Simulated scan of single mutants.
Amino acid sequence: MTAEPAVTTFAGLHHRPGEPLLLPNAWDHASAAALAARGFPAIGTTSLAVAAAVGLPDGRAATREHTLSLALTLGSEPFLLSVDAENGFADDPDEVAALAQQLWTAGAVGINLEDGLGPDRRHAEKIAAVKAAVPGLFVNARTDTHWLGDGDETDTLRRLDTYRQAGADGVFVPGLTDPGRITGLVRRVDAPLNILYSPAGPTLAQLADLGVRRVSLGSLLYRRALGAALDAVTDIAAGRVPGGTTPSYDEVRALERNVSASRSANSTG
């Protein structure tokens, strides 16, 4: 798969009326490969899981190298990769653009950049720098007005419009679950809207009906995996047989990365 068709396909997955891109988020090679094997054409990463796996804080620009390392591992795999890069791990737009270039070279076709409720103009400068450096990279611009702020609608719209004008290909509002407000954003923002799935919020089908074009799972799968591990050990300690799905040893081995093939692909461009 060459770079340009992959990018075109990823962008196209955001423009299917009534069929939003369901983007599951992985945290290592095995989780990504298992999700791809279930038929998901695109896989995202989750910053919380990347940080938690190495004992570092999420959202504090502490995992730049870990994020890049994961992208290098996943970028050569036969699925479309979008990377959660927090705020770009830097305040300097040029540094964020340099990271984006590295992710693109690794094989990523998308990047998620969050404003952390900082100045919208600075975030817009980062987006513009990324699009100037890597025009083909799909930039999903996230605002944290509902995740960290008070959910002010005027501020949300202003930020999304600013990011769109800076070149963002899609916009992301995690923490927003109210159907009416989601519909309002769909109608007023000229870009595919990404919503973070919440078990307490609208279903995937309901989000599709509202006009949402991308539904991310964020850290949900990672947290569910940790929960399943805790449930299993609790059952075993209590003398019960643990329930749930347990892939066999051979099934997990089948997910192993083909290192020699990946190295060959990387060495040829």
Rank of each mutant, 00 (worst) to 15 (best):
L103R: 01
V96G: 14
L221D: 01
P192N: 07
W27S: 08
Q102C: 03
D84P: 01
G227T: 02
V139D: 02
L80V: 04
L81W: 04
R263D: 05
T105E: 13
Q101S: 12
L255P: 00
V7A: 14
V252D: 08
R253G: 00
N112L: 07
G239Y: 06
P20Q: 09
T63L: 05
D169V: 03
A53T: 15
W27E: 02
L117W: 14
F40T: 00
R188N: 15
R164D: 03
L204W: 10
A124P: 09
A132E: 13
L35Q: 04
R214I: 03
P17G: 00
V139F: 05
T143N: 12
V233D: 14
L103K: 11
T45H: 08
T154L: 14
A168Y: 12
N140I: 06
R187Y: 01
Y222T: 00
L193A: 06
G151T: 08
R181P: 05
A61W: 05
I195T: 00
R187Q: 15
T105A: 05
T268C: 00
E153Q: 13
S216L: 03
N266L: 09
G116S: 11
L220K: 03
T63A: 13
G227I: 04
T145Q: 14
A97Q: 03
P174S: 09
L22P: 00
V7L: 05
V83N: 10
A106D: 07
A51N: 06
D144V: 10
A133N: 04
A6Y: 00
E114M: 12
A85I: 07
V109Q: 12
A11S: 10
T143P: 04
R213C: 04
V212D: 13
V83Q: 08
G243D: 06
